[in-house]
Write a protein that binds this DNA or RNA. Structure first.
Lengths: 152, 152
DNA sequence: CTGTTTGCAAACCTTTTGCAGAGCC
DNA sequence: GGCTCTGCAAAAGGTTTGCAAACAG
């Protein structure tokens, strides 16, 4: 699992410095975007427009490169839903693993994390000797609301 | 869950006909590729070279279009691992949900399905009232072999 | 016979790369 | 001061689209 106890901006900055990454303006802006929104998963264009509010010259290539770096460092994760990539902060609170319940009908994505997932993954770990670092669970189906609407 | 009891070629053909899809040569070749390899997940280029062994003019656009159609009909699923899309047959045996254990080190992908997953998902279903149709569970980490090698 | 499907090539969109200049430590 | 990081523009990939011909039912 991730080495960080706390995904606060300061911790992340310290962690990156320790591993030899230079803390530049573009990287600070990006880190701030994630730590201010620990439960949001952003697609690329949303991220771009957010970071450009703070630095209107923020380049596309730079954003891609910084995202890759954060993924490499296990600070954020990517998850592809319906052909769109979503980036989000990995936090110990979320156990670095959580479920996305994706409603095929209303396209809404609910996030859920809880001890059942940890339990379940420990089972997999024990059975397969697989040392889990990060996981993404995407479940496609129909959500409660849509099912109830369909009955009417 | 999927309406088909059995993902045999004949059943799939009948199912598609019923829903108004014309059974063409390119579609038969693609269906055969999946039903002959129910446990394989193919990337696009592997699929293309396989189907072109039977029809050397099989077009790229046609393959994309046919894959989209099969996804739409819930016959196959896509799963993105490390930026590559993998297509595979959905079978009731697999419970339409299984786990991919992806080793970051050797890049090997182990597939695993079992009652624990069904159990786990039923839990989610009950707790959230979410009607599950298809799910993909990707777990990134280090596999047993690589961990043992690292110790040496 | 009619509407759908196909292959081709061009268009598209997302992501990556090369490079000269700017910035961190 | 040295080496990394950045923005730009061009290139590269992967996927989609428009069209005329071929084909399924």
């Amino acid at each position: 699992m991730i080495e960080l106890e706390n995904a606060s901006l300061q911790n992340l900055v310290d962690f990156l410095k320790k591993t030899g990454v230079k803390i530049t303006l573009t990287r600070l802006i990006l880190l701030k975007t994630f730590t201010n929104n620990p439960d949001v998963h952003f697609d690329f264009n949303s991220l771009l427009s957010i970071v450009r509010k703070e630095d209107s010259n923020y380049g596309i290539a730079t954003l891609y490169r910084n995202l890759d770096m954060l993924i490499e460092k296990n600070i954020i994760s990517v998850n592809t839903i319906d052909n769109v990539k979503y980036y989000e902060l990995i936090t110990p609170q979320k156990g670095s693993i959580h479920i996305h319940l994706i409603c095929k009908h209303c396209k809404n994505v609910e996030e859920y994390s809880g001890y059942e997932i940890i339990q379940f993954l420990n089972l997999i770990k024990d059975k397969y000797g697989f040392d889990i670092n990060y996981g993404s669970i995407n479940v496609y189906g129909i959500c409660k609301k849509c099912r109830e609407k369909a009955k009417e």
